[in-house]
């Protein structure tokens, strides 16, 4: 708890900076939103000025920022001038898809990465280790959209195991939902898998050289139990950090993946809002994502204490 209190000012400061940066970034984008809304050509300057005033665009930047921030704090990101939809509603309605995608991708990546890394580290230097490492090395050189295309080609087009595009909500049919989420999640998972695997393998190898592992062996603990009980937990700190940090990577990946698979997620919403210059929507989504990222990493920081008693007792 002390830890939370001590880090809270940092969290708030970062969030403020992030929100200002978001606002600035979007405000600096070229193209007058008023012109975009009214449509180019044949619109009188008076009409544009009137709309600018209505949208509050004629006020100073800082005033607009605090105005926007004040509403944002109450959960009100405004309404899209294009669709008339509330930005918050739009985000919330699409959020489950992106969260499901991201969580599934991370779980798939971890489920594959942890055993592979343990196998690789236990047999470090062997042919098996080299094959696994080489595989990870190759996976790391394949961008997720390329992975997506080939998964579609093989698993959807050729073998017809999964639908190539589209999304079925969980509430409609859980099995169809998982089937529609499988390929996108797998595409996102592969590059994460490679990263997690290499990281954990490196840390496991250095942990396995520790005296306490030798001591565990001297106690007569079976090897698999040494790996699981003695080596895995002390080796997983950087993995945890990276899983948190990679959230940004997963979201970036989701923008492309959701577009490829035509999934109604936040990433696709962001991409299309950018294309349509729906600035208010872009602002809201970016702030939402960045806030989520900062908060998740804050929680990851705190959760070290669950894994590492040295941190827990440092208070």
């Amino acid at each position: 708890m002390h830890l939370v209190l001590r880090k809270l000012p940092w969290l708030i400061g970062t969030l403020l900076a992030v929100s200002f940066f978001t606002f600035l970034l979007v405000s600096l984008l070229p193209g007058d939103p008023a012109v975009m809304i009214l449509g180019a050509g044949g619109v009188s300057p008076e009409a544009v000025a009137a709309l600018r005033a209505e949208l509050g665009l004629d006020r100073p930047l800082l005033v607009r920022y605090f105005d926007w921030l004040g509403s944002a704090l109450t959960g009100d990101f405004g309404r899209s001038p294009m669709t008339g939809q509330s930005v918050m509603d739009a985000i919330l309605s699409r959020l489950p898809v992106t969260i499901q995608l991201g969580v599934m991708a991370i779980i798939i990546a971890l489920l594959l990465a942890v055993p592979l890394a343990m196998l690789s580290a236990y047999h470090a230097g062997s042919r098996l280790d080299r094959v696994i490492s080489g595989l990870g090395f190759a996976l790391m050189s394949i961008p997720s959209f390329m992975m997506a295309i080939f998964l579609i080609l093989i698993l959807a087009v050729s073998m017809n195991l999964f639908p190539a595009t589209g999304w079925v909500p969980f509430s409609v049919s859980p099995t169809a939902n998982l089937r529609s989420a499988a390929l996108p999640a797998l595409s996102l998972a592969m590059i994460e898998l490679a990263l997690y695997m290499r990281l954990l393998r490196t840390d496991l190898i250095s942990t396995l050289q520790q005296d306490y592992i030798t001591l565990a062996r001297a106690k007569g603990v079976p090897n698999w139990q040494i790996m699981l009980r003695h080596a895995l937990r002390p080796s997983s700190f950087s993995l945890m950090t990276v899983v948190g940090l990679q959230l940004g990577g997963v979201i970036s990946g989701a923008i492309i993946i959701e577009e490829i698979f035509a999934l109604p997620g936040v990433g696709r919403l962001l991409y299309q809002s950018i294309l349509q210059r729906d600035l208010l929507m872009v602002q809201g989504i970016v702030l939402f994502i960045a806030t989520a990222y900062v908060v998740v990493n804050f929680l990851v920081d705190l959760s070290y204490s669950l894994l590492d008693p040295r941190v827990r007792h440092a208070d």
Binding site: Q210, D211, Y212, T214, L215, A216, R217, A218, K219, G220, H230, R233, P234, L307, D308, P309, R310
Partner: peptide, 19 residues
Amino acid sequence: RGPRLAMVFQDPMTALNPV
């Protein structure tokens, strides 16, 4: 190892599992 042979290690700072 354990019931017949046992070993005491040199550095107690590193010989115990920290977690």
